[in-house]
Design a protein around this nucleic acid. Structure first.
Lengths: 157, 157
DNA sequence: GTAGGTGCAAACCTTTTGCAGCATG
DNA sequence: CATGCTGCAAAAGGTTTGCACCTAC
């Protein structure tokens, strides 16, 4: 796997950040992990485990579902990937590398996920936690509702 | 079912609020629903569907799992119960009646769930949504981390 | 050489569904 | 007495696991 069949640009560097970190934690760097990390970093949408599996299988049809799940779990523990509940029992993931932290609005009509960020929100969360001696490792803020477009279409009827 | 073997107090009144609302929406009020609602309202913890099933079966061993799920779904739609993702793919519920809205801190070590509320947080969420034309139906804010006690025990080691 | 990782298939867990019988309104 | 609800069991997702083989270190 020493040569790259195509230029991968930014996510190539990011992948090596992941590689270094995992190696440092005593994990092995396998072809499958490289592929899974590459695909996860290259995607700019919130993907399900199964969608990631499909992406990987385009490049290597014999990657197994179990490996994708196992790798996602390692990546999540290492903080490179964040799992988010879609509110209907499902789970989606996003990579965190190079992204700023943000929260999510989930449209219940079209399932679109909108990212947003508000520093004051972040600050007040820290404050609320500090007040009761709770130490935040991560947080998830999801607003469920209806997006602009869906609201508009709803009104037409 | 006309007489009560034990005083149930507050949750009895709350149950009738639910009953009225469901009847008004065209649902039937069955023994199973009464039982499920009673147990859901009486519990002061965040319960899983299965835990609620167990509670119900203590009173009536033949309640089916399907009925609990179907009733929880009705209650959630009607706004009497709120489902919350535990971050690990699981779901827990809490009843909303008589509770003020609040958010949650989840201790990743002892699994304790701490409720908190911050009005400013609520306001800023509304604001952020308004800014992009998103209409919030509900939201969930979970802070994952370590609670005071677990932090203390950790330091001991 | 030896952990650790992989693929496969089966197991698991939670939730949903089809259907026949039952109870509510 | 008609329709909606229930129980059962089976199906459906999504995720995890046991095991034999493989491969990175």
């Amino acid at each position: 796997m020493g040569t790259h069949p195509e230029p991968v640009g930014k996510s190539e560097n990011e992948a090596s950040v992941v590689e270094d970190a995992l190696r440092k934690s005593g994990f092995r760097w396998t072809n499958q992990r490289a592929l899974i990390v590459q695909e996860a970093l290259a995607t700019h949408v919130h993907f399900t485990a199964d969608e990631l599996l499909d992406l990987c299988r385009e490049k290597d049809p014999k990657v197994s579902r179990a490996t994708v799940y196992r790798t996602l779990s390692v990546l999540e523990d290492a903080g490179f990937v964040e799992g988010l509940d879609t509110g209907d029992g499902g789970r989606r993931f996003e990579h965190v590398l190079g992204h700023d932290h943000h929260d999510h609005m989930v449209c219940l009509m079209c399932e679109k996920i909108i990212e947003f960020r508000d520093d004051e929100l972040e600050r007040r969360q820290e404050l609320a936690a500090k007040r009761i001696g709770f130490s935040i490792a991560r947080h998830s803020l999801h607003l469920y509702g209806t997006c602009k477009q869906c609201l508009r279409e709803q009104r037409k009827k």
